[in-house]
Design a protein around this nucleic acid. Sequence first.
DNA 1: ATCTCCTATTATATTTTTATAATTATAATT
DNA 2: AATTATAATTATAAAAATATAATAGGAGAT
Lengths: 225, 225
Amino acid sequence: MGNKCVLVVDDEQRMRKLVKDFLQTNDFEVLEAEDGEKALEIFEKEKNKINIILLDVMMPKLDGWSVLRQIRQESKVPIIMLTARGEEQDELFGFELGVDEYISKPFSPKILVARVEAILKRTGQDEKQILEYGGIEIDTEGRTVKVDGKLIELSLREYELLTFLAENKNIALSRDKILNNVWNYDYYGDSRTIDSHVKKIRHKLGKKGKYIQTIRGIGYKFEIK
Amino acid sequence: MGNKCVLVVDDEQRMRKLVKDFLQTNDFEVLEAEDGEKALEIFEKEKNKINIILLDVMMPKLDGWSVLRQIRQESKVPIIMLTARGEEQDELFGFELGVDEYISKPFSPKILVARVEAILKRTGQDEKQILEYGGIEIDTEGRTVKVDGKLIELSLREYELLTFLAENKNIALSRDKILNNVWNYDYYGDSRTIDSHVKKIRHKLGKKGKYIQTIRGIGYKFEIK
DNA sequence: ATCTCCTATTATATTTTTATAATTATAATT
DNA sequence: AATTATAATTATAAAAATATAATAGGAGAT
């Protein structure tokens, strides 16, 4: 682990290689996809790992816009669109759909890397981050959590769940949403899995456990009050 | 309160006017500065208000880069640089200094607004949606309701019902319509389910309960008077 | 050996129903 | 037109039914 991971989606082999080489020399890990379908496939599998996506617009099978739309339904991962030329219509279209940046071909690899880094920086995916929420500190790099300065032990799921809730503080999250984000699958059956984990987290948070409040009929919400 | 505020820094009066007009028609508040020194001055005074800065690079007295550097010493406010032409050297230079975006002249106002909005969104400055109806605030993300600034507790159905009524304010809604939208099924029997909920909501809204008025023979209507 | 998930049980909150009171509409009568 | 009686509709409160969540314990997975 460690290095930032970039998913490069482009149908031109030559283009992929160019970008890949340059990114790799700049210490990025690179995943490749040669069309939209492959891209979604890889994204499904590696979504936890991927920090940013470079997405060509013009591709066979599934074009860049479709890929963008699908990914945006479940993820806010930064996406840079690679366009043949910056047509205004397309840009506007894309910003609404959640495009973070455009780079028009031909581009210089240096600019590419600079933009990738700028976006990672701005979306806070680069530096070691310590998120702080009312006395609860989450160190995303060390994957540790402190409550009032004291380290608490959380399991993988507990950590993921707490982080997800905290990152979306003040937002009531449905069970479906939680499952899709923390568990990566759809919710079958009526198990009380989430509840179990919430219970454990609350317990470990001690007095601050009440920051996780239950929204009856919906799910849970992290809120400091 | 309310609208997002943009500080436009450019020495050309014509350019400022163009940008200002377009931003204003898109519901932004606009502050102007004709050079770097004025920019810093205004920023000092209004830093709490300014959500984003459009900064021309080439300016008399103090150029864009210097302004950028100074502001970055104390603030992370998003900054878009307006450049005459996207020279690679400059771009790299700027990203390191914390530029969020480049727009090269000439640009279309539409693109400009789109980028501004995209950045505000990405930096989370687009505040969450709070619907306001005559002193009743509904935070759809947090699923909370405030009456005159004071939080009130609503159950799922109460919340859904109130939201539905408020979203359709000034429209008389039949019981059928209400049931189909808030309950998702047809109305069998003659229970007084809706009435019960309306009663409870009215009670919780206190004096503002009268905003929910009954339309005899039809249903209910949310109306502020 | 812990972590995750599931099951069962208990606790709690919400929703619906029911019964009765209050209000409003309607029509007949003055 | 105003009054009255009757019918229809809605308000209200409390009880009953239902839905949802907390909790604890344990089996299987990692």
